[in-house]
Amino acid sequence: MGRTEIIEKVNTVFRDVFDDDRLLIGEQTTAADVDGWDSLKHISLIEAVEEAFDMRFTMLEINGMKNVGEMITIIEQRVV
């Protein structure tokens, strides 16, 4: 799965989790850019992304990812 494909799919998950059909995310998007992306939402977001891609982040990654780009990179490494 290519990076563009991944980001498209991640965007779908974001739209579902944040209940916003027009939400558009990019590599540089951070929690500060998305309305409602707090620490609580972060947990349900992570679980939803994991389910969509059938992969797991480590604890360090959950806590450490700085923007959507980093999330994509991890997914890229784990999903064949």
């Binding site: 947990i43 604890m59 959950i62």
Partner: peptide, 16 residues
């Protein structure tokens, strides 16, 4: 239960 979610968010039952 998901240990990661308990450690980072004190969540005893995972959202799934």
């Amino acid at each position: 239960r998901d240990s990661r979610m308990y450690y980072v968010a004190k969540l005893p039952i995972c959202t799934r």
